[in-house]
C-alpha cells in the first residue's frame, strides 16, 4: 500500500475542505474495510486520507421526529444492536447483521457499506474495465457467474451492499455535505446510479462530498419486513441475490409493499413489477410465486449466471411468504 498524508479534520467543514475535485486523489476513510483492500490491491492510491469516524455529525443513531438519523460512520455493529433501529426500522438491522462477519461489522460502517466498490473479480484484478476508466466490461463475455441479470450494461457489476436494499426499501435519504458547508439531501433511490448513468461510479457522490448521515423514516405502522440473502457460504459472502421486503397487510391483504433486491443488478434494484403483482393480494404460495416471477421479468442473464433467475424468483417468493 502506498503511503499517504493523514490528518484528522476538526470539523465536517474541515473534512470537506481536504477533499479535491478529482475522484481518487483524496479518499475518505471510515471503517476502511473496503478502501484499504483497494489500496493494497492498487485499485486506489489516494495521496491523502481524510478520517471521519471521530466527527460528531457522523456518529451514532438518533431518533428525530418520525425517523432515525444514522451517522454514516456508525459501525454496522451499532446499527445491528441499536434498539431504536430494531424497533423503528427492523429491516435495516436484519440486513446489517448479514454483512460480512462480526469483526467486519465491528470495523465497517453503514456509510461505507452503501458506498463500497464492486466485487467483480475483473475489477478487483485491476483489468482495464469501465470502472477503471477503460472501455470494456470483461464479465460480459467472460466468467460472469456472479454478475448482473437486471439493469446490466455496459458494466455488469452487481451492487454488493446488504444495507442498501434495506435502506431503499425503507425510503431512506442521504444527507451529503459538500465544500463550504453546502449540504444536499438525496433520496436513496436516486443516490445509486446505473452504469448507463455513470459507468465509472456507483452513486452520485462528488469527489468533494461526504456522505454524512442516513435519514431513515420509521417503517410504516403495522408493517412487516425481512431480509433474505442467498450466498455460497452460510456467511461471509456477498449475495448471489438478496431481497429486502416490507409489507403492510390490511385485513390480510397487502396494502403497501416494497421489494428491493441486491446482488442482481448494478444498483439496489427495486422490483416494481413484483410489488405491483402482490399489492392488493393475500400472501399465498400462488401470489408470492407470481410476485417472484414478476421480480425477474426482463432479466437478461449472461452465459453463466442464468441460475440467478430462478434463485431470485424463489427468494422473493420466500421473503414474501415469510411475512404472511
Amino acid at each position: 500500500m502506498e503511503n499517504f498524508s493523514y490528518s484528522r479534520p476538526a470539523t465536517l467543514r474541515d473534512a470537506t475542505a481536504q477533499l479535491g475535485k478529482e475522484h481518487g486523489r483524496v479518499a475518505i476513510i471510515a471503517g476502511g474495510t473496503d478502501l484499504l483492500g483497494e489500496m493494497k490491491d492498487e485499485l486506489a492510491a489516494p495521496a491523502r486520507l481524510v478520517p471521519v469516524r471521530h466527527l460528531r455529525e457522523m456518529q451514532g443513531v438518533r431518533t428525530v421526529g418520525a425517523g432515525l438519523r444514522i451517522g454514516a460512520a456508525t459501525p454496522l455493529v451499532d446499527v445491528v444492536e441499536n434498539r431504536a433501529v430494531q424497533e423503528q426500522a427492523p429491516l435495516l438491522a436484519m440486513a446489517a447483521v448479514k454483512v460480512g462477519t462480526p469483526a467486519i461489522r465491528n470495523m465497517g460502517t453503514i456509510g461505507g457499506n452503501i458506498c463500497q466498490r464492486p466485487r467483480c473479480w475483473y475489477y478487483r484484478n485491476n483489468y482495464p474495465c469501465f470502472k477503471h476508466g477503460g472501455s470494456a466490461c470483461f464479465s460480459a463475455l467472460g466468467e460472469n457467474d456472479f454478475h448482473a441479470i437486471l439493469e446490466g450494461g455496459p458494466s455488469f457489476i452487481v451492487h454488493p451492499s446488504d444495507t442498501a436494499p434495506a435502506l431503499v426499501a425503507l425510503g431512506a435519504s442521504a444527507r451529503i455535505a459538500g465544500p463550504g458547508g453546502r449540504e444536499r439531501i438525496v433520496p436513496l433511490d436516486a443516490f445509486f446510479v446505473t452504469p448507463r448513468q455513470d459507468v465509472r461510479r456507483e452513486n452520485v457522490l462528488q469527489p468533494d462530498e461526504i456522505l454524512v448521515e442516513l435519514q431513515v423514516p420509521n417503517a410504516p405502522a403495522g408493517s412487516r419486513a425481512t431480509y433474505v440473502k442467498e450466498m455460497v457460504r452460510e456467511t461471509w459472502n456477498f449475495a448471489l441475490c438478496s431481497v429486502a421486503a416490507m409489507v403492510t397487510l390490511s385485513n390480510g391483504v397487502v396494502s403497501d409493499v416494497r421489494i428491493v433486491m441486491g446482488g442482481v443488478a448494478p444498483v439496489p434494484y427495486r422490483a416494481l413489477k413484483a410489488e405491483a403483482a402482490i399489492r392488493g393480494q393475500r400472501l399465498t404460495e400462488t401470489t408470492a410465486a407470481a410476485a417472484g416471477a414478476a421480480a425477474v421479468e426482463g432479466a437478461r442473464p449472461l452465459a453463466k449466471n442464468g441460475y440467478k433467475v430462478p434463485l431470485t424468483q424463489a427468494t422473493v417468493k420466500r421473503a414474501l411468504l415469510s411475512l404472511a
Partner: peptide
Amino acid sequence: RNIYSCTALAVE
C-alpha cells in the same frame, strides 16, 4: 471489539 488488524490503520 474483535477486529481484523490487517485491515486497520495503526493511526486510526
